[in-house]
Amino acid sequence: MAKLIDVSDLNIYYGSFLAVEDVSMTIEPRAVTALIGPSGCGKSTFLRSLNRMHEVIPDARVEGKVVMDGQDLYDKDVDPVSVRQHIGMVFQRPNPFPTMSIYDNVAAGVRLNAKRMRKKDMDDLVESSLRGANLWNEVKDRLDKPGMGLSGGQQQRLCIARAIAIRPSVLLMDEPCSALDPISTLAVEDLIAELKNEYTIVIVTHNMQQAARVSDQTGFFNLAAIGKPGRLIELDSTSTIFSNPSQKATEDYISGRFG
C-alpha cells in the first residue's frame, strides 16, 4: 500500500509571498525520506503541501504538480479531504483530542467520518494500530483513560496510531520528536524504522543525526536570504548526502558551518 509520490515544479505561496520555489523530487515508497535545512527554509511548508494541509491556512496556495498513483493531488476535481485520508500526518507537538479516551483517539479517524463499524472490528483496528505504534503494551489496561494523561512520547505515538488507523499509504511527519525527551525520541525513531516496511514516510527534522539514523534518502532545503523563497538544493541517498554531498551549501550545513 505504500506509494510513490512525484513532485514536479512546485511553487508554494502565502498570499503573494512565494515561500517555496520550484521543487521537483521523487519520494520513494517503503522508504523514509528526510527533509533537513535551516529554520524558515520551507521544508515544513513543503511537507504540508503534500497532503494539502497547506491550504488550511487562509490565502495559502500551490502551483505545480504532486502526483501519486497517476493522480495529480492538485487536480481541480480532487477533494482535499480525500487526499488526507490517503496521506496521514503527525505533527510537531503531540495533539491528541483532549475530550477523548485513548481508544476513542485511535478510533477518531473512522468515527469522525461517521463510518459505521462493528464493535469487534473497531476493537481489532484500535489494537492493531496501537501495536503498530508500539504503544499497545503500555496502554492496553487503560484504553478508556484520557489520551492527554499519557507522557509526551506516548502521546506522540498515540497520534501515530491515530494516523495509521485510517490505513493511509503515506505518512508525513513534521518534526515529530522536537517536543520529546531523548528516550521518547528513541522510541519514535524505532517505530519509524518499523513503519517504513508498510508506508511511504516523509519526515521533516531539525536534527541531522536523526535524519542520518532513520532515513534512506535525504533532501536538503535552503534559502538564499531571509525573505527569499526556500528551494530544494539536493536530494540523494542519505549516505551520500552525509558523506559526499554534491553541493557546497549542503556540505557547509552538514558540517555545521551555518544553520
Binding site: 488550511v56 490517503h86 505533527f91 495533539n95 485510517i166
Partner: peptide
C-alpha cells in the same frame, strides 16, 4: 493543533 489533527485524518 486539534483542527489540524482532524483535517489530517481526512475529516471534512
Amino acid at each position: 493543533d486539534l483542527r489540524e489533527a482532524a483535517y489530517a485524518l481526512g475529516v471534512p
